[in-house]
């Protein structure tokens, strides 16, 4: 299954030692395939930040297996994790996290710098990516001179520069006004349309509802894994909702259907007209009784 980008099996995370062990994640199972756009939602304390840290190779799980792009990263050492972060993951943060003393181009170059690619080769790639997020005019501006929306676009370009297998976004619109937020979401939709795999943590129910697949967490467990309502975002030129995502079973790593590029494009065309009244998980019901799978089987 070469199209599986990310696979969690019985992933646990504990903090503390001895008597004071605090179990944050209770054995998560999750499969995300290439081209999926997955939202992770949940109340604070539900473990989504911890999950994001693990997915981002910033931390090591206490138990279980985490395969990223076919490689088990749970047991990697610090340098190898850094390498995974560098090559397989693109981070987009709520607070942009651009380095203030570097200009736009240098910020975007950073992952390539740590990958050891020579300066001459970095430039064209970065300029191309910045052009694709519409930031060509600010190549040599510093982050403090940019608006929030511009900062986030630069951050997205930076996240993409090493062609990561997985784009991890942590509340990417949390610090933006609605207009800029919408723009950034359009950008994510476009990336999704281009076939990128995106995992996004969000608190915003509207955004969450608009995503093709939603994973809901509660108390360190995945309580629901459903396709979102395929509502087009206003102003989004190219919307895509893969029909295949609707068939995903919560907590199962095998039931997902990967939409092929063509199917997705077709689906996008019908999406405006199609509302799925009978579709599973049409609305996001947090903590709905009787629906908790009680952990992965």
């Amino acid at each position: 299954m070469s199209d599986v980008v990310l696979e969690l099996a019985g992933l646990t995370k504990e903090f503390g030692l001895g008597e004071n062990v605090l179990r944050i994640l209770h054995g998560l199972d999750l499969v995300i395939r290439r081209g999926e756009f997955v939202g992770i939602v949940g109340a604070s304390g539900s473990g989504k930040t911890t999950l994001l840290n693990l997915l981002g190779c910033l931390d090591r799980p206490t138990g279980g297996r985490y395969c990223l792009a076919g490689r088990d990263v749970a047991q990697l050492d610090d340098d190898e994790l850094a390498r995974e972060r560098n090559r397989s993951i693109g981070f987009v943060f709520q607070s942009f996290q651009l380095i203030p003393q570097l200009d736009v181009l240098e910020n975007v170059e950073l992952p390539l710098f740590y990958d050891g690619s020579p300066r001459k080769e970095r430039r064209p790639r970065c300029e191309e990516l910045l052009a694709s997020v519409g930031m060509t005019h600010r190549l040599h501006s510093y982050p403090t001179q940019l608006s929030g929306g511009e900062c986030q676009r630069v951050a997205i370009a930076r996240a993409l520069v090493n062609r990561p297998a997985l784009l991890l976004a942590d509340e990417p619109t949390g610090n933006l006004d609605s207009k800029n937020g919408a723009e950034v979401m359009q950008l994510f939709d476009r990336l999704h349309a281009d076939g990128r795999t995106i995992v996004m943590v969000t608190h915003n129910p509207e955004i969450a509802a608009s995503l093709p697949r939603i994973v809901e967490m509660q108390d360190g467990r995945i309580v629901r894994d459903t396709p979102g309502t395929a509502r087009p975002r206003p102003g989004t030129a190219t919307l895509q909702r893969g029909p295949g995502t609707a068939g995903l079973q919560p907590g199962s790593g095998s039931g997902g259907l990967q939409p092929a590029g063509d199917a997705r494009r077709e689906a996008r065309e019908e999406v405006g007209a199609r509302l799925e009244p009978g579709g599973p998980g049409a609305t996001l019901e947090r903590g709905a009784p009787g629906l908790e799978p009680g952990g992965p089987s």
Binding site: L58, D78, A82, R83, R85, Q97, P111, Y114, R158
Partner: peptide, 16 residues
């Protein structure tokens, strides 16, 4: 500190 965190997230090793 944050800069260090960002650099680490973007793939800087401890040595870098």
């Amino acid at each position: 500190t944050r800069e260090i965190g960002v650099r680490r997230a973007l793939g800087a090793r401890r040595r870098d």
